[in-house]
């Protein structure tokens, strides 16, 4: 039977369908890998409650492991502890920026009302003169920003803690 380390390595080949540069390991969506008897049990957690990518990720895991010759796979979805952007790997942050998506800044906007939006440097030109266009972007996990220096409109992977 394969080792959990081996399975964990395989999981680096499962990508987020909506941010295809990130693997589920980079994202911190992969929570646990277990080998119980002849069954591989993978535990994952959603980034947002309504994240439509979860079903696809589940299917991709099963399919990939099948290709690797593992037929008995269980994928378990857990909500607790709730996902946070702190689980995004250092490597994942670099990949995001290279892909043109600003990685999460360390602080979540805690204040509810009219707090100054977080400064999110432009992923293209690194200017800090940028502005929030909308808290809600192309997917649940992103906000929409625009750079005032190079005018690039870009997604910001918003901080969730």
């Amino acid at each position: 039977m394969v080792s959990t380390d081996q399975i964990r390595q395989y999981m680096e080949e499962v990508f987020d369908p909506e941010v295809p540069v990130l693997t589920i390991v980079d994202l911190g969506v992969l929570r646990k890998v277990e080998v119980i008897g002849d069954t591989v049990k993978i535990t994952i957690t959603p980034t947002y409650s309504g994240c439509p990518a979860m079903k696809r990720i589940e299917d991709d895991i099963v399919e990939l492991l099948k290709e690797k010759g593992i037929d008995k796979v269980e994928v378990d979805l857990v909500l607790s502890p709730a996902w946070t952007t702190d689980w995004l790997s250092a490597e994942g942050r670099v990949k995001l920026k290279e892909y043109g998506i600003a990685p999460p800044e360390n602080e979540m906007d805690k204040s509810v009302l009219f707090a100054e939006p977080t400064i999110v440097p432009c992923p293209k030109c690194d200017s800090r003169d940028t502005k929030l266009v909308s808290q809600f972007g192309s997917t649940a996990c992103k906000a929409h920003y625009q750079c005032s220096t190079c005018l690039e409109p870009y997604d910001y992977f918003k901080c969730l803690k």
């Binding site: 959603p46 947002y48 409650s49 909500l79 607790s80 009219f114 808290q135 803690k161």
Partner: peptide
Amino acid sequence: DAQLSAIAAKSLKETIYHLRHSSEWII
């Protein structure tokens, strides 16, 4: 109840963004 607590913890993070958005529009 552990599951109710987990659902609430997950939903709370989202709700903070929702409240901020709707509050800004009201003002």
